[in-house]
Amino acid sequence: MDTILKTENLCKYYGSGQNEVKAVQNVNLQVENGEFVAIVGKSGSGKSTLLHMLGGLDNPTSGKVLVKNRDIFKLKEDELAIFRRRKIGFIFQAFNLVSSLNVWENIMLPIGLDGRKPDEEYVWDIIQTLDMQDRVYNMPNTLSGGQQQRTAIARALAAKPDIILADEPTGNLDSKISEEVMALLKMSAQKYGQTLVMITHDEDIAQMADRIIVIEDGRVVKQ
């Protein structure tokens, strides 16, 4: 298969000696292009640390993260920043919208940062898919949690990244809205041909994934 994301003996340790905490230990995993993978684990199992390393937000203690066979930690700091902007879309539990910008501006922000010309038609299509067309000029604080997460999803999709990394994307939403937002995220990733890696502790939501990876104490216990 066409592997888009791969880790080789990925480790992340904090502290040293007796206080050493092994957040992620020897993780080897592979994600195929277009796949939807859920990484499931309890809080403190190291799944967030793992996701951060997959997206180049955090440096590993040892091991590699390969995106399309390229070791991302061999990139220079500013190259890595551009790599993240172009190739990876992030969705966080806390939405992380910029409160002084409206919905449209929030969605366009990553594209603007990259100095690229936005494909407005594409962005509009995403906004319509996510049913946010009536709220593009709203400020984030006037939106419900579900709407804020829809905005964050639109922002992640708009820059046409290859991979979307979602960190507990529905952690702040009630269960019905969670399931709808997840279905939406899955549908959009499918529609726009993006690979989706999501971490969650919610088994109900993980069911929607093509594949579930279970992580316990920093190790992959089931693939």
Binding site: L130, D131, G146, K176, E179, E180, L184, E203, Q207
Partner: peptide, 22 residues
């Protein structure tokens, strides 16, 4: 819902253990 119609089918049967969900 906003984008989807949700259809829930709930029974009072034997249930499914969570490990078997997938």
């Amino acid at each position: 819902l906003v984008t989807f119609l949700r259809i829930e089918i709930e029974d009072e049967g034997i249930g499914i253990p969570a490990e078997e969900y997938n």
